[in-house]
Design a binder for these strands. Structure first.
Lengths: 349, 349
DNA sequence: GTGAAAGCGCTAACAT
DNA sequence: ATGTTAGCGCTTTCAC
């Protein structure tokens, strides 16, 4: 590892000069040709700044922590992290991920990150929920991903659930469906609520009556399949909007058992929570991919913006949430989800 | 942030004494009661060692880098990472994850990690493959996860693919199946090769002839479903061993279209690559979960063992791979995969 | 324009 | 048994 000292010796200047030049902090004060010689030497000797030493001095690590409770093993966690990672690497930051089954493990991780002096945190719930932010994070720069602060103190990035429901339903209507069912999720979540509202609004906007017998919220268990089969047999819907891929599978099974072909006899639009559709059902399915990657990406951007605007000064962070620069169209707080056409929802019409 | 200096002042000793006491490096040399006063003060003042400063001094960060090319967005990545994370946190280490679509992005990440002075690397391919280890990692402590070094220079942790095939097939035989098909993967991979061999060996060991018409290796596309349907119609197998969940879905669809019920009319054992089975097919399926978590866990353990045995001295690492302590039964290089019974493969026999 | 010097917080060899 | 000292590699003020 080459150090500034070695460069200084080689060129015959002092370390301070080297530091100034290499950091572009000399406002033309260092003579151009000597500055050039410093740069050349650095290049030649393969100089790499020692991040540790720099951080110790500047009190800025350019590292941010990604905290997620319980479910970082969930399939989509990776995409959020990837998005955050990409954004951060563009900005010259690094990401350290911490997750654990219980709060205690996570708390430990947060502690460790603090000892390393991370500049800020991303906090993620892995499915759009209202969460309690751990006390230990509150005095740090913090942005929530796919989650909302119960006390609404921190900026957050989440998917536009309403539009998911609205767009999916509209797509089915445009495909000619006249009895559209919604196979939802029985647990109360922002995602379920938002999507269901979007579904109803889309129906209303197209002059269709909402019929509660067409909405079927299920848990992920044995009863679910029966519920969907009963719904089908009783109501004979011609289109299904599915909360996620697990729910979509019930529709597929129901259809297959009745000799129906999805994409011809019945239309399905599903939210691809697990990126499974792409591998299995996809040929016959129109999917909506959750913008996990984008959420991670924008959250990281927002966090860094905050850090660089306000510094990492612990004490003043909690109050600064408000003056955060409002995100524009290119970096929304509610991220839009795109509908992906694998093949027509109603193949041969 | 309390520093050692502050503690020293408070207690009226020098920083070195504080350092010695707090690091337990005084072999009883510091007088017990003064040592106690130091510890009390540290406690009271909420002292947290500054990891940056320590690392700068000791040249050890207690951070390891997790490198994965392309597919860290893959669903199982999270489980490997979680395993590594848990092991590392037990050992007082932190994990920084780097992944990117292309080699260039990854290279950049590796660079950044080196600047922070990570102690070593884990390198993962996200599906058991033979890989070329990036040159930039070769002079560091390194362990491969779910991958094998093409030149066989580094320790690696991978699933026991042969046993997966063997156990799955045996399970089907024990359930009474007599014509067992293997729905495999057309790309050449360690996983495909190993599982197929296990399948054949299990057949042989139970006195059953391997019939190549019962092995059907497919890509994940439209033709796959047709291939499985043709296999079924021509050979009428009564049991299926499926390479992964995507392949299993073709079997489910085939069965559903023929009015057959999995678990009664036909038996299926599948490898749960994507943790989808658990959510969708599971009630009727016997699955084999890949030990992603365990692989991450053991790989991290092995890496730390190597680091602590041999230090992070760049120059000498490449040669030290051989003398690594052989892993014992509790930390195998080939990790055993367990068969998980959701319900009998052949429910009512 | 450039260099000397101080110091970030910690460790460890060397004095006392 | 404890303190002194000298850094680790870098940034930054202040003198020259």
């Amino acid at each position: 590892m080459t150090t500034m000292k070695q460069i200084a010796q080689r060129v015959g200047v002092s370390v301070s000069t080297v530091s100034l030049v290499l950091n572009g902090r000399d406002g033309g004060r260092v003579k151009p040709h000597i500055a050039q010689r410093v740069r050349d030497a650095a290049e030649e000797m393969g100089y790499q700044p020692n991040a540790l030493a720099r951080s110790l001095r500047t009190n800025r690590t350019h590292i941010v922590g990604f905290i997620s409770v319980e479910v970082a093993t969930t399939p989509y966690a990776g995409r959020i992290i990837q998005g955050a990672q990409d954004a951060l690497s563009e900005l010259g930051y690094l990401l350290i991920t911490v997750s654990g089954d219980d709060d205690k493990a996570v708390e430990g991780g947060i502690h460790a990150l603090k000892r390393y002096g991370v500049d800020g945190f991303l906090y993620s719930a892995m499915s759009n929920r209202v969460v309690d932010v751990p006390e230990s994070l509150c005095s740090f720069p913090l942005v929530l991903v796919d989650a909302t602060d119960a006390e609404n103190r921190f900026p957050s990035i989440e998917p536009d659930e309403f539009r998911i429901g609205y767009d999916a339903t509209t797509r089915l209507i445009e495909a000619g469906c006249e009895h559209i069912a919604y196979i939802g999720c029985l647990q109360p979540m922002i995602a379920q609520t938002g999507r269901a509202e979007g579904y109803r609004q889309a129906l209303a906007d197209h002059g269709m009556r909402f019929d509660e017998r067409l909405q079927c919220d299920v848990l992920n268990n044995g009863r679910a399949l029966r519920a969907v089969e009963e719904l089908y047999d009783a109501q004979r819907p011609d289109g299904f909007f599915c909360f996620n891929d697990a729910r979509a599978w019930y529709v597929y099974e129901t259809a297959a058992r009745r000799g129906l072909t999805v994409g011809r006899d019945v239309s399905v639009v599903g939210v691809d929570n697990h990126r499974v559709f792409a591998e299995t059902f996809s040929p016959q399915l129109t999917t909506i991919e959750l913008p996990h990657y984008e959420m991670g990406y924008w959250a990281a951007n927002r966090l860094v913006a905050a850090i660089e605007d306000h510094g990492v000064d612990e004490a003043q962070w909690p109050q600064m949430t408000a003056p955060l620069p409002p995100l524009d169209a290119t970096s929304p707080a509610k991220v839009h989800c795109t509908l992906i056409e694998k093949e027509s929802v109603r193949g041969d019409r």
